[in-house]
């Protein structure tokens, strides 16, 4: 019968219309600003820098300014300047740190390639998405201070990944300590060994921190 297809279609529409009032599966709208969406753990938007200690964020950055992410970033939105001096990192080893670390979030496309290539677990993906500003340039250019967030924050947004990273870093640190201990033992056993190689290290340690 001509028109039966249309009637069938109207029936479907009516079912959906009525269903949207009492069937939660058909009621899919979220009242957004009042009700926030539940983001999946894997959700990513814009990178941030991880620091180990929230009380001293810039002093405990994991980043050593190796500039790998700057080189690999497809839209070239990362800008890094290395420091001239060195600061001890979490394990106490003196490391270069980023004197300037800036990400232009108006260019960043949240592809997370910087996270994948980072050998130090220093840069991770954030979950912010309400980042609208009225200033196109300055407000969207995030500097080192704005980018740095503590490891505890990383744990709240990506708990699984953060736990993995922490376990890996702890294992690395333990292995390094073990190696240092074995080396120290070997050194103690061979007191006749020439002391020359150790001298420059000792000398460097004596240089004042506030060199620049």
């Amino acid at each position: 019968m001509l028109g039966s297809g249309i009637l069938q279609g109207l029936l479907v529409t009516a079912k959906n219309f009525v269903g949207s009032f009492h069937d939660p599966a058909r009621y899919t709208t979220l009242e957004y600003p009042e009700v926030k969406p539940a983001l999946p753990e894997a959700y990513r938007n814009f990178p941030f820098l991880v620091c180990d200690n929230a009380t001293d964020p810039l002093g405990t950055l994991r980043c050593v300014a190796c500039q790998i992410c700057e080189k690999e970033c497809p839209p070239q939105c990362i800008y890094i300047e290395k420091s001239r001096d060195k600061k001890p990192d979490a394990t106490g080893k003196p490391q270069i740190y980023p004197a300037v670390f800036a990400i232009d979030t108006s260019v960043c496309m949240s592809c997370q390639i910087c996270v994948e290539v980072c050998p130090f677990d220093a840069i991770k993906m954030d979950q912010v998405f309400e980042v609208a500003t009225t200033d196109r340039y300055a407000a969207l250019l995030l500097d080192r201070g704005q980018l740095t967030k503590p490891n505890t924050y990383f744990h709240t947004i990506h708990p699984t990944e953060a736990a993995e990273v922490d376990a890996r870093l702890a294992a690395d640190r333990q292995a390094a300590e073990e190696k240092a201990r074995v080396a120290a033992l070997a050194k103690a056993k061979a007191p006749a060994a020439p002391q020359a190689p150790a001298a420059p290290v000792a000398k460097r340690d004596q240089t004042p921190e506030s060199a620049p």
């Binding site: 810039l58 420091s83 300037v100 500097d143 080192r144 201070g145």
Partner: peptide, 9 residues
């Protein structure tokens, strides 16, 4: 041009 003034270490 530098993107941000280097803050003191």
């Amino acid at each position: 041009p530098t993107p941000a003034a280097p803050s003191a270490p």
